[in-house]
Simulated assay, not measured.
Amino acid sequence: MTKKMAIIASKGTLDGAYPPFLLASTAAALGFEAKIFFTFYGLQLLKKDLSPKVSPLGNPAMPMPVPMPNLLQILPGVEAFASWMMRRKLKQKGVASLTELRTICLDSNVELIACQMTVDLFDFKNHDFIDGISHGGAATFLAFASEADITLYI
């Protein structure tokens, strides 16, 4: 019997995007049937234009070159710098890009499900998204998740 992993991806930030793709692609490599349900801001990760950012604001665990008070983190350019820094660090360490991980998931038969309610809520159109995804509601995903060996909310 095939093991199953169900993941809910609700964050569209750079640091929130890696866990669902990494976990699902690893699960698929280990023979799991894996599905990711992208809802609310996580839906951004299925768009053709994949350019998430990371915000140091309110993220005390984010390693910065120098400690930075929250007040300074709201200044223009800080988010762009933090995003650049994170992308640079990922590349230096040989971590696959989000586009590569997303493609690995699709090639590994991980089902990427766009939450239809969120698509409607934010007035997205099908042409906004990459090819190869499916659409479904919470009931569709819960039918799978209720039988999953591992269910994660990220």
Rank of each mutant, 00 (worst) to 15 (best):
L106N: 06
V119P: 00
I104Y: 00
M86N: 11
E100C: 07
F124R: 09
A80H: 08
G94H: 14
E111F: 04
R87L: 15
S134Q: 11
A80I: 06
M85E: 10
L101G: 09
R88G: 09
D128S: 10
A82V: 07
D123Q: 15
D120V: 04
W84G: 10
T103S: 10
M85W: 14
I104W: 00
E111M: 11
V110Y: 00
R88H: 15
L121H: 02
S108N: 10
A82R: 04
V119T: 05
N109G: 12
L121G: 00
D123W: 01
Q116E: 12
F81S: 14
L112T: 07
Q92T: 08
K125Q: 08
M117A: 15
F124K: 11
F81I: 13
H127K: 13
S108E: 05
F122Y: 08
V119H: 05
R87K: 15
A114Q: 07
L106I: 10
G94E: 12
E100G: 07
F122A: 08
S97L: 15
G94L: 12
T99L: 14
L90W: 13
G94N: 13
Q116F: 00
I133K: 03
I133F: 02
S108F: 01
S83Y: 03
K93F: 05
I130M: 06
L101Q: 09
I113V: 14
A80T: 13
G132S: 09
K93W: 04
E79L: 01
K89I: 10
M86I: 14
M85G: 09
D120F: 00
V95E: 09
A96E: 13
C115S: 06
A82L: 03
Q116Y: 00
A114P: 07
N126E: 11
D107S: 11
A114R: 08
I104S: 03
I130Q: 06
N109M: 10
I104F: 00
T99G: 13
F124D: 08
D107L: 10
R102A: 06
L98F: 04
R87I: 06
R88C: 10
K89L: 11
G94Y: 14
M117T: 12
D120C: 03
A96S: 15
F129G: 03
I113A: 11
E79D: 07
L121D: 01
K93P: 01
